[in-house]
Design a protein around this nucleic acid. Structure first.
Length: 139
DNA sequence: GCCAACGTTGGC
DNA sequence: GCCAACGTTGGC
């Protein structure tokens, strides 16, 4: 089991929209970055991820699960680009703000802090446990 | 709205 | 294959 973080601008695709899918898988389309794509290729069914709101919100707001392995991104005109499907698992009881993550020395190496422009990031098990604890989510 | 950081493009 | 120019992301 590995852990990930999916970043989205709420104006483009929000946690509310994710939840509205009612646990049905939705395609995580639109990634046009090789590192992010490679992270999606490494995902396995059942891997869990944080759902993070960038630009507005700036917080981890939910938990998602990988529901389909990487496949061609139907919104891309180039087969280079792939996406996975994810489904909403649970809302973070207390959203974990970026400011709180930055203020936590245990999370200093998190990609969210160290490489803030990467839209699909790996999360270590220790980071996963720490952020879940901060948000009151029993992982 | 600004700007720093980063990825990509394209000329050489 | 280098690197300058450019575009985009995303925090502030």
């Amino acid at each position: 089991m590995r852990y990930w973080l999916f970043k989205s601008e709420p104006s483009a695709w929000s946690w509310d929209q994710m939840k509205a899918a009612g646990g049905n898988p939705t395609e995580w389309t639109g990634v046009r970055n090789y590192l992010a794509r490679n992270n999606m290729r490494a995902m396995r069914l059942g891997d869990l991820g944080f759902f993070y709101h960038s630009n507005e919100g700036l917080a981890v707001v939910g938990i998602v699960e990988v529901a389909a392995l990487a496949h061609a991104d139907s919104t891309a005109d180039n087969p280079t680009w792939e996406c996975v499907d994810i489904r909403a698992v649970a809302a973070m009881p207390t959203p974990v703000a970026l400011s709180a993550i930055k203020a936590n020395p245990k999370l200093a190496a998190m990609a969210l802090v160290a490489n803030s422009r990467l839209s699909v990031q790996p999360v270590t098990q220790a980071e996963w446990a720490e952020v879940c604890a901060m948000g009151g989510y029993a992982s």
